[in-house]
Amino acid sequence: MPRYAALIYEAAATAGTGTPEDWAKVMAEYTDFGATAGAAGVIGGGEALQPTGTATTVRVMGGAKGGEVVTADGPFAETKEVLGGFYLLDCSDLDEALKWAAQIPGAWYGKVEVRPVIDFSQGM
């Protein structure tokens, strides 16, 4: 069966900055989708991401592996690059995640944005 990634782009308002009522409504809609698509057996995995304020972008200079690693605060600002894929990294902290991110070839062919996944078990 072919696999597809559904990449979710949304206004910052639904990403944790709205009122608790807004947030509850959005969460209910996602729960609803999860139940429907889950029952249909199409969901192979997925995560919610923390807001872009927690993002860090990594780039390896020189267009090749081993170049200087430049780390910057903030999300990837879209220019001519397009989203080419993603990895889920299990790391103990941001330093470890950035270390691995800087080894992804995309870091020297473009940039890699690292953002924490929301851990719903810790409460919001």
Binding site: Q50, G53, T54, A55, T56, V69, T71, D73, S92, D93, L94, D95, V114, R115, P116
Partner: peptide
Amino acid sequence: SRAKKKIATARIPYRVPADHELPDRLPA
């Protein structure tokens, strides 16, 4: 407050970098 939030949420660790990490960390 935004910086503190990022430290907490993105888990910027509270530790001294190892010697080999210093070239990446010291300039900042």
